[in-house]
Design a protein around this nucleic acid. Sequence first.
DNA 1: TTGTAGGCGTTATCAT
DNA 2: ATGATAACGCCTACAA
Lengths: 341, 341
Amino acid sequence: MSAKPPTSLDVAREAGVSQATVSYVLNDRQGVRISDETRARVLEAVDRLGYVPHAGARTLRTGHSGLVLVPLVDVPYGPLAVGLMEELDRELSRLGYTMIQYGARRLKGMAAARAWAELRPVAVLAPAGRLTRQSVDVLRSAGIKAVIGIGVVGWSSEIVSTMTLDHEGIGATAAEHLLARGSRTLTAIVPAEDGLRDMGLLRAAGVRRVAAARGVPYTRVDLAFSEAATAARLDMWRAVDTTGHARTKHGVFAYNDEYAMLLMAVLADNGFSVPGDVAVVGCDDLPLANLLRPRLTTVRLDVTTGPAMLAQTLDEIVRGGAAGQRRLALWSHALVERDST
Amino acid sequence: MSAKPPTSLDVAREAGVSQATVSYVLNDRQGVRISDETRARVLEAVDRLGYVPHAGARTLRTGHSGLVLVPLVDVPYGPLAVGLMEELDRELSRLGYTMIQYGARRLKGMAAARAWAELRPVAVLAPAGRLTRQSVDVLRSAGIKAVIGIGVVGWSSEIVSTMTLDHEGIGATAAEHLLARGSRTLTAIVPAEDGLRDMGLLRAAGVRRVAAARGVPYTRVDLAFSEAATAARLDMWRAVDTTGHARTKHGVFAYNDEYAMLLMAVLADNGFSVPGDVAVVGCDDLPLANLLRPRLTTVRLDVTTGPAMLAQTLDEIVRGGAAGQRRLALWSHALVERDST
DNA sequence: TTGTAGGCGTTATCAT
DNA sequence: ATGATAACGCCTACAA
């Protein structure tokens, strides 16, 4: 049925030239001039045979694969993450790399590192949390030039370059806005889910910082994504106006738009007014944010600048050899003001 | 700084054995008995040197890579798609394959096919829409055993095996439920977005089929994801009760939960009652479905059975050689009944 | 301008 | 049970 795939030697025979000539034509090597007629014959043969070079063989010979491995991060995949990947892919391919995403969930620690190393990528972008000292060693000794940790700043930043969102800045931006719109207390929601918790803590730290600077009461609420858990936390915002006191407006940064939606649903169910009693800020600017009533004020992350910078840095590290550890704080953000504050 | 990666020869020297012995130990080849002591020495050397086999070289030698290439599909990435990928990854690795996701957005047509073929994967799971006859030829002649189209049933199903959701069944399930809950007309929303439109049409066909069978008026609404576009279509459901007629309950299958949320927001803004005037069914059972008020009835897709079947089939095709075209209708679905109907 | 030949790291065949 | 050796497909220095 299907014979073995054609090799460059097959192409050479078909075109009546040598294997080297085929290689020259396909990689249009400089310093070697091929007659137009020969070139045409080669290309035609390539086409006729459906020849495609064997990446493995090329890697073996040249010593580099041009592969950039990106283990699928286990943060929730929203439009944001997809947009980032897309942009990163574009940038890397512009620089001549091939970006590949690799299932990271299945394997952990050393096993994962070995699986990645087998492919001899030129760079690995791994969730910072998954990088142990050992696994980084394995990656390094497999000849991977750039190991870049993505996500939360941690110990790993002393070993590899890291790219992170400015989570604290996001929390601070939200907090500043809440105060500007009249909130008298600040609360930061931290998701209880594993993958989100670390980022939640950083964002909460940003809120706390602003609260401290402005002398405003601050509360951190660790919250599972459920209506029951949320309802159990509502007392803190219950207005004390049975005594005729003026109502206090409370400000909440809900970590992201989904938690914000959860919160707003439960608040509405329990007779709270948004933003009258509680003002809410989300993050991500998902489509749903603008469909909530009131429409959700949210922090939008910029998707373009980050990947470009990252790709650029990666390229520099790869070309320049060992370039030490750099810390990249990427992605600017902006507040999208709507009605929930 | 970082020397070249250790090879199996380095390991052999370190352990004081031959290269072949290293290979035997690492792949624990049957029919060859290695003394426990030798085996231990080899494994220790592997560990000390941080040796990881070179996938490219192995592929070159053995003729197969064990790679399954999954171009990132350009449908919106929700929890569903992520869950599917995760599950598929698990199943494939159980069968000894390595699943890899490849940026598909950048390249189109032949260029994409060639890029995929370079890696000499054993199988490719590509969006059916991207597969042209030529590109399938290239993939085939590069020795790829299984080319499986994912997504909408189209011409390509005559060339490659295809895996698709039972979109029509989803629409039908939603429609049956709407009628059972008292809707007197049926409407199917079809997203105007490129990647979604084809699936939307299939789901709509399921709704139409049920409507025809039951003798109920059916309308298809092509809709862009915007409040303005949605508001412009509301007249069709405006109750004619100025004349005192009994109100007609209208049933809408909104394609997915996000469109359902869009619709419900606009309906509420314009004084419609859900489910009194209009009953709404979504699809995907996103977290947001249960946070809408009224809570959204939705069709949930089963994430487990599909990938397992797919991996199984893929394995059969790969092992059994050319196995003709099969059509796989995958993933069962179930209705999750809530308050919006 | 084009051809020849050697080697990248691995596995498998064939001796020992 | 273990070791030497060839071959996979490609690239490239060198020879012609």
